[in-house]
Design a protein around this nucleic acid. Sequence first.
DNA 1: TATCTTTTTGACCATATGGTCAAAGCGACG
DNA 2: CGTCGCTTTGACCATATGGTCAAAAAGATA
Lengths: 205, 205
Amino acid sequence: MNEARPVTRIQQKNRATILDAALDVFSLRGFGGATVDQIAATAGLSKPNLLYYFPTKEAIYEALLGGLLDTWLDPLRAMKPSGEPLPEILAYVQRKLEMSRDFPRESRLFANEIIQGAPLIESELSGALRSLVDEKAEIINKWADEGRIARVDPHHLFFSIWSLTQHYADFDVQVRAVLGEGVDDPFPEAEIYLTTLFTRMLTPS
Amino acid sequence: MNEARPVTRIQQKNRATILDAALDVFSLRGFGGATVDQIAATAGLSKPNLLYYFPTKEAIYEALLGGLLDTWLDPLRAMKPSGEPLPEILAYVQRKLEMSRDFPRESRLFANEIIQGAPLIESELSGALRSLVDEKAEIINKWADEGRIARVDPHHLFFSIWSLTQHYADFDVQVRAVLGEGVDDPFPEAEIYLTTLFTRMLTPS
DNA sequence: TATCTTTTTGACCATATGGTCAAAGCGACG
DNA sequence: CGTCGCTTTGACCATATGGTCAAAAAGATA
């Protein structure tokens, strides 16, 4: 019973290679726009060989998306009611911004999925995501009750954190086009700006 | 020389129908994921008939995208240096939010294009878009110089306006999933939240 | 080295897809 | 009513695409 899946070295390596290549392709073209041949070529494998590791194109996509939402929410999970309100929130913003900087492909994959109606993860959105957000929204409300931050709609606060941080990954091309050649890394300025924004908005008057 | 294109009633109607159907399909599936058959079916036309009005799938896509950026920027153009700073900016935010509410498909089409690297409009991004933004950034800076708003990075200010407002169109599914069944229109609350956010951030301390 | 399992591949298949074309249908106008 | 130009369509085509399969190649194991 020990080897239901005989995960060999080769399998581990090739699965990882395939998923990495698929992330490249899916995040750039979306599910429908991606082809198995493109993924196989990017991975440096023949198409039948790729299909030896994953039975279908859907299976690759699902493997990528599975757990992505979880990873995406880890920074929010880390927001503790015991901490100081503003630093906790700013830390969350910063972690999300770091994810946009370090994992832009994952962000774009996620964005693509949502824009296209989240056919695969809608249940998770209204399940796990929603309950986590509701739970954390309570914390925000409690902090506001205590006068430790200004009162804001907690759900829209989270929306704003998501959109502001993910924008730098998803709309990277636009950001760079607008900032021009002179700016090769928008993230340091983004961090300053977002810190200012949330500090000013949440500091009790 | 009056009728280089003999735009008949039928042509006008069918072109409009096709573009509307194409907007449905492209905004939901992206360029690569959309098929001519889907568009034709949505438009209620046969495929050859559709291709009588637009020579290729690309042509339909380009027709949709052409001018979309322009329309998208109109609210920004309306921001006048002669007005009161905060109301001008809040009006811009509100107009953008209204566009997300009233034209979500256009917003998603645009988002798809950018996420996928903006192959078609990158030149416009670093051309027309960039110069308009630079011009309006000057105004923001001037207002800050005069102490009429708090100082912020104007480019990132625009990024934040775009991302916050478009989020409600592009990530609509997620927004609704998180807010739950009880909320059928997130926009009124969004407007309040965004007004609060930008007011608090931009009001001079 | 011989054997057994895992991995890789060339050849192949059915269907989907973007696009063409000649011919038929239709509507305005003299 | 007949003609002429615009519109529509069924049939068709080449290529792309997701996926299969039997057999060869390459490891692992004894």
